[in-house]
C-alpha cells in the first residue's frame, strides 16, 4: 500500500510517499495512521493535531473509520488552501 504526503507534511518528512504493509490488526484508516505514527517520530510530531488532516483512499476523501480493505493509495492531507 502506498501512503502519500503533501505540502508541508511532505516537507517535514522529507519524502512524498512510503510503501507499507500494515499488520492484520490495522483495520481502519484511523488505525493505519496510528500505526504509521507509532513507527515514525517525525510523522507523529507533524500530526500532533490530527483533527486538522483529511484522509483519502484510492483518490477519494473518506471518513477516518473507513476500512483499509482494497486500499492501494492512501493520502494524508493537510488543511487545503486552494481556490
Amino acid at each position: 500500500m502506498k501512503i502519500l504526503y503533501f505540502a508541508w507534511l511532505r516537507e517535514r518528512l522529507n519524502r512524498a510517499s512510503d510503501d507499507v504493509t500494515p499488520p492484520a490488526d490495522v483495520v481502519t484508516l484511523e488505525d493505519l495512521v496510528t500505526w504509521l505514527r507509532a513507527n515514525d517520530e517525525s510523522l507523529d510530531l507533524a500530526m500532533a493535531n490530527p483533527k486538522q488532516f483529511k484522509i483519502s483512499k484510492n483518490a477519494r476523501i473518506v471518513p477516518w473509520n473507513t476500512p483499509i480493505d482494497g486500499a492501494e493509495e492512501v493520502a494524508i492531507l493537510p488543511p487545503m488552501t486552494g481556490g
Binding site: 503533501f6 505540502a7 508541508w8 486538522q52 483519502s56 476523501i61 493520502a75 492531507l77 493537510p78 488543511p79 487545503m80 488552501t81 486552494g82 481556490g83
Partner: peptide, 29 residues
C-alpha cells in the same frame, strides 16, 4: 467556491524575497 477552498486538494505556497512559506488554512473558509 466555498467547497473548493476547503475540500479540493491544492496547497498554496507564497514565494517572496525572504523565501517560501505555506499559506495557512483559514477558519473563515
Amino acid at each position: 467556491m466555498d467547497y473548493l477552498k476547503t475540500d479540493a486538494p491544492f496547497w498554496k505556497q507564497e514565494e517572496a524575497a525572504a523565501g517560501t512559506e505555506w499559506v495557512e488554512a483559514k477558519a473563515s473558509d
